[in-house]
Amino acid sequence: MFSSLRSLWMVFLKMFSKRVTIEYPEQKAYLAPRWRGRIVLTRDPDGNERCVACNLCAAVCPTDCISLQATEDENDRRYPDYFRINFSRCIFCGLCEDACPTYAIQLIPDFEMGEYNRQNLVYEKEDLLISGMGKYHGYSYYEQAGVAVGVKPKGGGENELDPVDVRTLLP
């Protein structure tokens, strides 16, 4: 009983404290760099698409709102033929970013995506792709992977030996 009265008094006193309201949109709130907002696709340090169309983001997505199709360029470099996120379904959970093995898909501190028409919330690859590396700098998946896709020759990647000479008999 007493604690209820005390609460009433304390709440009453809040009348005289400073307001915490941030008057959006005149004032903007601070959003942390890891804030989970609009999803973007980034590029690697060479300016190529980071996405290798591995489908992990689509698989992990709890609302199944990501779909893509893999294709390859003339160097066998795999990339998404199309990459679509239906933001009218997206819950911005960030699992896709967690699942991404190449840092391609990232959530950025931007949430101002409102539309009058739901159809406009369907983002294609052109809408998602940005020209920079986003939050993670300097990482290029194809430098690490074992496949040769025009980025490096076989054995030219990080932590790789030159290709084996199958015909040598030396131990």
Binding site: A59, D64, I66, L68, R84, V122
Partner: peptide
């Protein structure tokens, strides 16, 4: 059970 993209693969045609 892991099938992905159900709400997105046809979203370019209609979001419904």
């Amino acid at each position: 059970h892991r099938f992905s993209g159900r709400t997105s693969s046809a979203a370019n045609i209609s979001v419904h």
